[in-house]
């Protein structure tokens, strides 16, 4: 009887966060969570605090952002990251679906290759791009692009860097989103008269939509912050500066105010993207 009361009490405690926090294990977890949240908030707040302390009001921040070089970096960042998002979605949907639905020879190898850009240091991707376009097939590709007036030291190279860094996250998110959709629904749709493509369009895609969108937004936020590969492969020429490289350049010449202003813009965009991910991702919420 007593034990049953204890169990009931424990269950009730598990449902009340404040009571749960009195348990030693949960209390330790809560302390770590609070410290972690404080660390992230302190880093974000430090940018804003530095600017305020040095007399930068909203008008000064806007003036910094309206400088031609900075404005161009913001615009180039947004346009290239959206282009890379389009490429990312065009890759992650079919690859995510394939990894989720099919067992085939070489699947483990493909799955490993998808993860390669996640585990290698980002700058290595830039160096690999340099090596690829510096020899063999890459030279031919570059020559072909040159004939139609395109160069890798442009938005094209930036999109390539952003795409290679962000696409694995979108593929993993897409595969997870498709895994969530019961295969029997597709089977029933096909018996009801759908081709595989129509079953995908009418059943799988709508049911996986939120997970796919969340993966896309996450990949876009990742693309927006790509730095190392762009530095290594595209460089920091005046026409190819994106927000992350611009922050670094401004810092290197002592313009901390401008660098921090850009950092705040990137934080704001990433924060908005994260809020969207939380709103869209299945099973996620703020509570």
């Amino acid at each position: 009887m007593r034990r049953r009361r204890d169990v009931a009490r424990e269950s009730a405690a598990a449902m009340r966060p404040v009571a749960a926090a009195r348990e030693p294990l949960m209390a330790a977890c809560v302390v770590v969570a609070v410290l972690f949240a404080a660390m992230v908030l302190a880093l974000v707040g430090a940018d804003a605090w530095y600017l305020i302390r040095h007399g930068n009001g909203p008008a000064d921040l806007l003036r910094s952002l309206s400088r031609p070089g900075i404005r161009q970096a913001v615009v180039l960042s947004l346009t290239t990251s959206l282009c890379s998002l389009a490429l990312t979605l065009a890759t992650s949907l079919p690859l995510g679906y394939l990894l989720s639905r099919q067992r085939f020879p070489g699947r483990a190898l493909l799955s490993t290759l998808v993860d390669v850009p996640i585990v290698v240091p980002p700058v290595v991707i830039g160096i690999s791009l340099l090596a690829f376009f510096g020899s063999g097939l890459g030279v031919a590709v570059r020559a072909g692009l040159g004939r139609v007036g395109l160069s890798m030291v442009s938005g094209l190279g930036i999109v390539l860097c952003q795409y290679l860094v962000s696409v694995p996250y979108a593929i993993r998110a897409a595969a997870a989103a498709f895994d969530e959709v019961d295969r029997e629904l597709e089977a029933v749709a096909m018996v009801l008269g759908c081709s595989r493509w129509r079953a995908f369009r009418g059943v799988t895609l709508p049911l996986a939509r939120n997970g796919l969108l969340a993966g896309g937004v996450m990949a876009w936020a990742r693309a927006l912050g790509v730095f190392g590969p762009i530095m290594a492969f595209v460089g920091t020429g005046p026409r190819v500066q994106v927000m992350p490289t611009c922050v670094w350049l401004e810092l290197s010449v002592g313009n901390i105010d401008v660098a921090l202003t850009l950092a705040l813009v990137m934080l704001g965009l990433s924060g908005a993207a994260l809020a969207l991910v939380h709103a869209l991702a299945p099973g996620r919420s703020w509570t």
């Binding site: 029997e184 089977a187 029933v188 749709a189 096909m190 018996v191 009801l192 049911l207």
Partner: peptide, 16 residues
Amino acid sequence: PRERRVGYVPQSAALF
């Protein structure tokens, strides 16, 4: 499956 003219009801109902 779509060309067989078979109606199928699974155990889980599998409603969309």
